[in-house]
Nucleic acid binder design. Structure first.
Lengths: 209, 209
DNA sequence: TGCTCTATATATAAATC
DNA sequence: TGATTTATATATAGAGC
């Protein structure tokens, strides 16, 4: 959908392939977001570029965000979580905001695209390295928390379902008991009735049982 | 894009939400397929419906397929205790290969604690860097896989519970219907019996109802 | 990359079967 | 659910900055 109809094969021109990747990737994410909102479903998307870079998308709505907060407050108390998660949490507060990270990605991608990294000084590179590391920590931390959160949400769902299930089972048991009592009453009733009815109505009784 | 512009919020009408889900889901998958072909990237999509059903999409080389296979065999082999992340973490630490990593951490911590890193040669440092990077990759990969496993397992559980729930509900409905029929029969029976019984047995009948 | 613009190609909402 | 149809809404290719 554009000026020209594209053949469904790898775009050879590196530049326009990159442009298309960028456009369509965001388009796909947008679509995913819409689908998750409109239909109330959870969606996860992982895109690995040929260079191995990972782009991901995750949804769950603000339900996840709220659960995330609850989870975070519990996190302190429940330190039984794996060490690396805990470690990542410590780093999380230390490092810069995501704006910095966005800028970093921009810079790095441009620099990696054109091999002019030689122009950077050792100090520049060290700085870049630190920033990248920080960015990675942030991403990992956020990803981990999102996934942990998803797990937590699912556990809660599970609990609720099991509870509901138990209630239903109890209800059934209760109904069965009632039914038994009713049946017994009917049997008893029938016995009494048999003693007092003529053959005509006994015929109806047999039909009932 | 359609006869009407949709508001970006959950579609309330269950039926049309389902239709939209179906259409947009396939649309999303198609887009993903196109993106993966045009730009030569690997894409994985997981969609969890509110009822817990999983729709997935995978593309690209056999990278994802392999990951999935690994996941499958992993599930088969370790179904026993792979119920959730926390328990799997225990298992996690049992892996012998991570001892290397533990040692590495120790070394690094010691070296970072006391700034005597100068004593290490550039070659040493490069080697150390490589090992750390490799260890990190292993951990991250395994962690991600474990969490994905956990999520998947939980979603499966959820599906099963919902199914069971539905069955129980049906059962209850059926029992209620039976009960109604039985009551009707009793009422009818009572009417008949009333016409043929003496006052003594009618007393018993009233007790029943 | 990131935007903008414009012409077109696609996706899809609603209705119907 | 799935297929079709039709009217519209969106996405995006290509070009330029």
């Amino acid at each position: 959908m554009g000026r020209k109809k594209l053949e469904m094969k790898k775009i050879e021109n590196k530049s326009s392939r990159q442009v298309t990747f960028s456009k369509r990737r965001s388009g796909l994410m947008k679509k995913a977001g819409e689908l998750s909102v409109l239909c109330d479903v959870e969606i996860a998307i992982f895109i690995f570029s040929s260079r191995g870079k990972l782009y991901e998308f995750g949804s769950g709505g603000d339900g996840l965000a709220k659960t995330l907060q609850r989870y975070q407050s519990h996190l302190e108390a429940e330190r039984k979580f794996s060490t690396d998660v805990y470690e990542e949490e410590k780093y999380h507060s230390k490092y810069a905001s995501f704006q910095t990270f966005a800028e970093l990605l921009q810079i790095v991608e441009r620099d990696l695209g054109e091999p002019n990294m030689e122009q950077l000084s050792l100090t520049d590179l060290t700085q870049l390295e630190k920033q990248l590391d920080s960015a990675l920590r942030q991403i990992r931390s956020r990803k981990t928390r999102l996934m942990m959160d998803s797990v937590q949400t699912l556990h809660q769902k599970e609990s609720m379902l099991i509870e509901e299930n138990d209630l239903l089972n109890e209800e059934i048991t209760a109904m069965e008991n009632n039914r038994k009592q009713a049946d017994e009453v009917i049997v008893g009733f029938n016995a009494i009735a048999n003693n007092h009815m003529n053959s005509h109505s006994r015929h109806a009784t047999l039909h009932v049982l």
